[in-house]
């Protein structure tokens, strides 16, 4: 059901983990629906994405799209990163099954949420960037029972 590229990124996710010196972090998605993505960005003074990491709770496509999205934005300027759409992520993965297209949208949103966080922290405005819709505030989704 998945392309070889999707399987490759799922099996060997690129840039997986946390970034301690991140200056932009965005978390999108909804545990209820089974997908949460978090993107960490380390953006330098020239507004170039020096490093990027991700963490994802979700299906194979969710992991693969997060992984591919981090590859696509790494080393790019903020403006170039803004131009990366979910379509670009999907194409880079040689396509996704129709029911998984929302995963690629989530990857795009996660990048935007991290950029938004960076912009907020640094008091700047990024052209074309709006407040992410499905941004999750920390801890909000962690009300499950303990066992």
């Amino acid at each position: 059901m998945y392309t070889e590229k999707v399987m490759d990124h799922f099996q060997h996710p690129r840039n997986m983990g946390e970034l301690e010196n991140a200056n932009g972090v965005g978390t999108v998605g909804n545990a209820k629906c089974g997908d949460i993505m978090r993107i960490y960005l380390d953006i330098d003074d020239k507004q170039i994405i020096r490093d990027v990491k991700f963490k994802t709770f979700g299906c194979g496509a969710a992991v693969a799209t997060s992984s591919m999205a981090t590859e696509l934005v790494k080393g790019k300027s903020i403006q170039d990163a803004m131009a990366i759409t979910n379509k670009a992520v999907m194409e880079a993965l040689d396509g996704l099954p129709p029911v998984k297209v929302h995963c690629s949208l989530l990857a795009e949103e996660a990048i935007h949420a991290a950029l938004w966080d960076y912009a907020q922290k640094n008091g700047i405005e990024i052209q074309g960037l709006q407040k992410p819709k499905s941004d999750i505030h920390e801890g909000e989704e962690d009300e499950g029972e303990d066992y």
Binding site: I36, T56, D142
Partner: peptide, 8 residues
């Protein structure tokens, strides 16, 4: 290790 929920 990959899960933001687990990290939180």
């Amino acid at each position: 290790e990959m899960s933001p929920l687990y990290e939180d």
